[in-house]
Simulated scan of single mutants.
Amino acid sequence: MFQLGKTIVSEDIIEKDFVCNLSACKGACCIDGDAGAPLEQEETKILETIYPKVKPFLRQKGIEAIESQGVFITTEDGELETPLINGADCAYVIFDKNNVALCAIEEAYNQGEISWKKPVSCHLYPIRVKDYTEFSAVNYHRWQVCDDACTLGKELQVPVYKFVKEALIRKFGTDWYDELEKVAKTF
């Protein structure tokens, strides 16, 4: 671990390789698991605002889940997350013609309907950020469904932090990312 500003960063984001391999995993991270995507407080307001423009991109099951649970949920622990369809798929998941899970929010963004790409936690994955009072912990989240992404990342020699560069800059800023790159050169 090392410190960058008000973050404590796992060395794994520099030392481990990762490149999403959607043709292999089919977007399993959006349909497996037992929780929705973590959300920041500001993102809940964005979801409320953009939902009418995202709705046409959603599957009927997603619309039903969102309209019964809300555009976001609050867990028993007070965490904010995207709602799930029957405790599995993220309610915002759609599928392409090859049955690959995609994000309806990101599709609305790609089509120019909205200016917000998707929740930052999704954009950052496989990095997870946990905010504490004095600092934020920046960790690599290892999950078996992403084994093919690890293999592809190793083949292409792309460390995690480079794979999620745009998302890290979105979350922490360009100066923070530039400092991260300086640290990475020392490894």
Rank of each mutant, 00 (worst) to 15 (best):
N99F: 12
Q157S: 12
G112A: 10
T186Y: 07
G112N: 12
F18V: 09
A137E: 14
V145M: 09
K185P: 06
V164Q: 05
E134G: 09
G36Q: 03
A184G: 07
E134S: 11
G70W: 04
A28N: 03
E81K: 13
E67C: 03
K53R: 15
K154E: 12
I105C: 03
I66Q: 15
T44S: 00
D77E: 13
C122Q: 06
A24C: 11
I169L: 04
K45L: 13
L39K: 01
K185V: 06
E76C: 03
E155D: 13
E113K: 15
T49S: 11
L152H: 09
D34M: 14
D17Q: 04
F187L: 12
V71K: 06
I8H: 00
A167W: 05
T49Y: 14
P159K: 07
T174F: 00
K6Y: 13
T82Q: 04
V54G: 08
N21A: 12
I13P: 15
V183F: 15
C150E: 13
D175L: 08
I85A: 10
I114D: 08
C25E: 04
I73Y: 02
N139Q: 15
G70Q: 01
Q157F: 10
N86P: 10
V145S: 07
N110R: 13
I105D: 02
P52Y: 09
T186M: 10
L168C: 03
F18E: 06
N110P: 04
L47S: 01
T7F: 02
Y161W: 10
I94H: 07
L58C: 03
L47C: 04
H123R: 07
D175A: 08
C25Y: 03
S115L: 13
T133I: 11
I31N: 06
I105V: 08
E48W: 07
G70N: 02
E15Q: 12
D131P: 02
D32Q: 15
Y92L: 03
T74P: 01
I94M: 08
I169F: 04
C122K: 04
E166W: 07
E106Q: 09
G62I: 04
I73A: 04
F18Q: 03
S121Q: 02
A65I: 08
K130A: 09
Q41M: 13
E179R: 15
V9L: 11
F135A: 02
D77P: 02
K182N: 08
S23K: 10
K45V: 05
V100C: 10
L168Y: 02
L39W: 01
K130S: 08
E76Y: 00
I85P: 11
R170W: 09
D12Q: 13
L80F: 09
A137P: 05
C150F: 12
N110C: 10
E106L: 01
L152Y: 11
